[in-house]
């Protein structure tokens, strides 16, 4: 627990001691929701079985020490919706461009492999950035070592858009608001 809170040196001490219950609570809530959506029976036997399995999963996750700000990014959830909307718009735009180039044929594409810098501070921010790049068709993050990402793209213009840094800026903003 101490190691996890050291990574969050920005947050004052009294909040750090409150950190663990928030994440456990959020994991518990999402697990209960998952059980309820998948089973949707409300007789006592099945509900108690659900409670038992949720408790078991919580215990195992606690033993594995994976309940922290990385697996349950609750501090991001407020700002996340705006970012997701922008990402959806981005995905639609790049989908149209990739589909256009599929039908135009091989001569219209210019595959490129470059290395760019990520300006995010935490691992979580870097992972969000890399996954957003991969989720957008036309660009795939091939490798991520330290601050440098290797990116393969279908078109040269995609790399130019990435280097202009709008997505990078938005992810960094998202990360800094926590």
């Amino acid at each position: 627990m101490m190691n996890n809170s050291k990574a969050l040196n920005k947050i004052p001490l009294e909040e750090v001691s409150y950190q663990m219950p928030t994440h456990t609570l959020s994991l518990c809530l999402s697990l209960s929701l998952f059980w309820w959506i998948n089973s949707n029976y409300s007789n006592p036997l099945l509900l108690s079985l659900g409670a038992a399995s949720i408790l078991l999963v919580l215990y195992i996750a606690h033993r594995m020490d994976v309940i922290d700000h990385e697996s349950q990014p609750v501090h991001l959830s407020l700002k996340m919706s705006g970012y997701l909307l922008w990402l959806t718009k981005e995905i639609i735009v790049s989908n149209i461009s990739v589909v256009k180039h599929i039908w135009l044929g091989n001569s219209s594409i210019s595959p490129t492999l470059v290395t760019i810098d990520a300006s995010q501070r935490t691992d979580l921010g870097k992972v969000i950035y890399a996954n957003s790049i991969t989720l957008t068709p036309g660009t795939v993050t091939v490798d991520l070592v330290g601050d440098r990402m290797t990116i393969h793209s279908l078109l040269k213009e995609n790399i130019d858009t990435l280097k202009a840094g709008e997505m990078d800026r938005r992810v960094t903003e998202l990360e800094n608001r926590c």
Partner: peptide
Amino acid sequence: LRFPDFFTRMHAVGVTDTL
């Protein structure tokens, strides 16, 4: 089927997988 190599094919799969 149409793209020339593995990495470009990956982008085509990306289209079907997301949108």
